[in-house]
Simulated scan of single mutants.
Amino acid sequence: MDITSWVFTAIGVILLFVASLFVFRQHTISTGQALLFALGVALVAMPHVVNFEWSDGGIKFTTKEATATLTDQVKSITEQQKEINDQIKILSQTVKDTSERMNSVLASIKSNDPSVTIPSTTVVPPETWKNFLDKNEKINEQSLQTIFKLDNLQQELAPATK
């Protein structure tokens, strides 16, 4: 924990101690003492909580550790997606090159011997390949941006996980 976390924790513990002293002296819990307890607990918990909400009579909160774990998992999945997209890009470029070579060979055979019957092949237009490769490149760029954002989030959460 960083120094700010220690300060909040220390102040929270002091408030809890003071509220406990008041309770032991008077043997009843007043609204002020209950508020001191609540404030003390809040200050102790604050360095560890990313967000919280009060709903349906309960408190829901997310800890920094849980957020850091989730961030690690999302980053891992995004990196795997980027690796797959890189492989798709290489495979697509290879298939495109092979298709172009095949079309060139078929055209050469046809020009040398017009009587040769060439089975009909489906020729993929170059624009289709270009669009496919461009879309794959955009996905890779988005993956890199997501990884960058997740790295920043991990750095923000790093003091909480150490």
Rank of each mutant, 00 (worst) to 15 (best):
D134M: 06
F52E: 01
E100S: 01
Q73I: 14
K82Y: 03
D113I: 04
T122N: 15
Q142M: 15
P126E: 02
Q80G: 11
F52R: 08
S108D: 03
F52D: 01
A66W: 02
S111K: 14
T121S: 13
Q81W: 00
Q142S: 15
K135E: 09
D72E: 08
T122D: 08
S55F: 08
I118S: 08
S104P: 09
A66E: 07
V74K: 02
T62P: 00
L91G: 11
S76C: 03
T69Q: 14
G57N: 05
S115T: 12
K82S: 08
T122W: 07
K89D: 04
T122R: 12
N103M: 07
Q93C: 05
G58P: 01
I90E: 03
E65A: 15
D113F: 11
F61K: 15
N140P: 07
G58I: 10
I77W: 13
Q73A: 15
G58V: 15
Q93M: 09
E127N: 04
S76G: 15
N131S: 12
V95C: 00
S99C: 04
T78Q: 07
S115L: 11
T63A: 06
N131G: 08
T62I: 09
I118R: 06
V123E: 10
V95P: 03
E65Q: 14
D97H: 06
N112S: 14
L133N: 01
W54F: 06
K75W: 00
S115D: 11
T94M: 05
V124I: 14
E83N: 03
D134L: 01
S76Q: 12
Q142N: 11
S92W: 01
K110Y: 02
I118Y: 06
S76N: 15
T63V: 10
I84Q: 09
L70W: 11
D134E: 06
K64N: 03
I139N: 02
F61N: 14
T71F: 03
S55R: 03
L70M: 11
T67S: 10
E127C: 05
T67D: 13
I59H: 13
P125H: 06
E137C: 05
R101P: 02
N136W: 02
V124K: 02
V105L: 04
I118D: 03
V116N: 13
G57F: 12
T69H: 10
A66L: 13
Q80F: 08
F132I: 03
S108W: 01
T94F: 00
V74T: 06
L106T: 01
D97I: 00
V123S: 08
R101F: 12
I90S: 12
K60M: 13
I88Y: 03
Q142K: 09
K135L: 13
G58Q: 15
E83H: 08
N140E: 11
I88D: 00
K64H: 04
D113R: 12
V105P: 02
E127H: 01
P126Y: 01
D113K: 10
T67K: 05
D86N: 14
G57I: 03
E127L: 04
S111L: 10
